[in-house]
């Protein structure tokens, strides 16, 4: 069956390419392609290649050494911890918020949508500062935290909080339009057929939004691991303790340890490439479903 789907996809692409009336003369097409390729190589391919060349400049041994350095390992570990905590929380929040916005009508709905967008609008540095103001030494809860011997700022909780703040729109933003387009008829059908809330969520809603959800998770993960600004403000840059990977790269770079800085940076670059690959795979999967839908509609 998958073979027929692929061939359908091909004929679909051909159909788009064949329409002569809307195509430009050859020289226009080629110069547009050339301009975009030139631009991409200048701003994307060359820097990306530079990251990997610089990382391997002192040989593969030095590259590995930079990665297994205790400070580097601790930075990697902290980055993974921050992502591993913020991801599930964002997953639950994203699905809940998208569900509420797409399937119910309530007062203040537009305010909620605006609030979800807030981290996109606010500079990450300000996001970090907010937490310093709340939990820092001179902040609202500063004294209470010191009295009870809890550390938020310049410690892991602060980093996790900042990461959650900058990543929480991704999943909700991805799901809201999808769920709005799908409507709530299928859920109502499940309800009439006797399914309870959990059964509806697991058997109807989640399977319907799985590609959008996965897409949102991947974007959230990429952002959580790559976040610099907000985390930088709350982290305190304590080596081996509160440094995430992006912060570790900065420290190494400022110490003129280029090869090590680029080695750690190459991990982040690799993460970015992986994200892109997964993203296009998911988009391909999702569009495949849509194309089949459209063909049947015809």
């Amino acid at each position: 069956m998958s073979a027929t789907i692929v061939s359908q996809l091909h004929s679909y692409n051909k159909k788009v390419a064949r329409s002569r009336a809307t195509s430009e003369p050859a020289w226009v097409r080629w110069s547009l392609i050339a301009v975009s390729l030139l631009f991409l190589s200048l701003f994307l391919f060359i820097p990306l290649a530079a990251v990997f060349t610089e990382a391997l400049r002192k040989g593969f041994g030095a590259y590995i050494a930079a990665l297994v350095d205790p400070d580097a390992l601790s930075a990697i570990k902290l980055t993974v911890i921050a992502a591993a905590i913020s991801l599930p929380l964002n997953l639950v929040f994203g699905v809940a918020a998208a569900w509420a916005i797409a399937k119910f009508d309530f007062r203040g709905k537009s305010i909620l949508i605006t609030l979800i967008d807030l981290p996109f609008a606010v500079s990450p540095v300000i996001a970090g500062l907010i937490y310093v103001l709340i939990f820092g030494m001179q902040g609202w809860f500063g004294e209470w935290l010191i009295d009870h011997d809890h550390k938020v700022i310049f410690a892991i909780p602060g980093i996790v909080l900042a990461t959650i703040f900058v990543t929480f729109p991704f999943i909700a933003r991805e799901l809201i339009p999808l769920m709005q387009a799908q409507g709530k008829e299928e859920e109502e059908a499940g309800l009439v057929l006797g399914a309870n809330g959990w059964q509806i969520l697991w058997r109807i809603t989640l399977p319907n939004i799985k590609w959008g959800l996965l897409y949102g998770v991947i974007l959230t993960n990429a952002r959580a691991m790559g976040e610099f600004g907000a985390v930088s403000v709350v982290s305190g840059h304590i080596r081996g303790l509160t440094n995430t990977m992006p912060l570790h790269v900065e420290i190494l770079y400022n110490e003129y340890n280029y090869a090590a800085a680029f080695a750690v940076a190459s991990l982040l670059a690799f993460l970015a490439l992986l994200t892109l690959a997964l993203k296009s795979f998911i988009e391909w999967q999702a569009s495949r479903d849509v194309i089949i839908d459209e063909q049947i509609e015809e």
Partner: peptide, 23 residues
């Protein structure tokens, strides 16, 4: 439902079986 609201990710068989499976 007006637009049928069939569960798009389930086969026809599973669609019809749904009401019995969730009991």
């Amino acid at each position: 439902f007006q637009h049928y609201a069939l569960f798009r990710h389930m086969s026809v068989f599973e669609n019809v079986a749904f009401g019995l499976r969730v009991r």
